[in-house]
């Protein structure tokens, strides 16, 4: 029988999710323990699907070329082996949570606020998995070939963000989006991995960060215009 290798990357991603689940058990909780857990399960499913779809969308030309040149099974294996994009996973996860809110009659803003520290810690621990897998690395910053430790920086930032969100009483989701987008926009300048999409001045993730910041600003201004 073929042996099955378990990589530290997948173990750390699942560990991050499990710590997120543990954080969602804290009290007081505005949603039931079952609903919180179910939201996080569906978030993981949505994140995996969204992360992979986003990766395929960014590398669509390479994907089409692969299917045209190689056999279907081999091309499928190559395409699946590509990886995941965090912002795609994030969008998929949020979409899944909104779907659960609809089916289980939950308030989306309350649910997202309550689960925000879990999102932050999941990313923080997941990035340690990136470090061990050797992906998402920084650019070379010295003549000895030393790279900027982007994974460690992001991990530390997300763990601190989780603690900060746990201390807050409201608007945690907005704060999470704001702080993470700003941080991600800056850290992207130090990234050195070539297998990422970019457009004009910025990388895809920086454009998404900017879009999130503009959307946050628009929603912050919008209520004031209402009579």
């Amino acid at each position: 029988m073929k042996s099955l290798a378990i990589t530290p990357y997948s173990l750390l991603i699942i560990s991050g999710w499990l710590v997120g689940v543990l954080i969602s058990l804290r009290k007081p909780r505005p949603i039931s323990r079952y609903d919180g857990f179910y939201c996080l399960v569906m978030m993981m499913v949505g994140a995996m699907a969204g992360g992979k779809l986003f990766y395929l969308a960014i590398n669509i030309k390479a994907v089409i070329a692969e299917f045209q040149t190689a056999e279907f099974a081999a091309a499928l294996k190559t395409v699946l082996s590509g990886g995941f994009v965090l912002y795609g996973g994030f969008a998929g996860g949020i979409a899944a949570i909104l779907l659960v809110c609809r089916t289980n009659s939950l308030d989306p803003s309350v649910t997202l606020d309550f689960l925000s520290p879990s999102f932050a810690i999941s990313i923080g621990i997941g990035r340690i998995g990136c470090l061990l897998a050797g992906c998402c690395y920084g650019r070379i910053i010295s003549e000895t070939g030393m790279r900027f430790p982007t994974q460690i920086c992001e991990s530390i930032f997300c763990i601190m963000l989780c603690v900060f969100l746990l201390l807050r009483k409201r608007n945690q989701f907005r704060l999470f989006l704001l702080l993470y987008s700003v941080f991600r926009f800056i850290i992207e300048f130090f990234r050195g991995d070539s297998q990422r999409g970019s457009l004009w001045l910025f990388s895809t993730s920086q454009w998404i960060s900017l879009a999130i910041l503009i959307a946050l600003a628009a929603t912050a201004i919008a209520p004031r215009k209402r009579p």
Binding site: T7, S10, I13
Partner: peptide
Amino acid sequence: SICFVSCVLCVA
């Protein structure tokens, strides 16, 4: 998830 992501990374 663990097995699929591991499998994917092995191929990568």
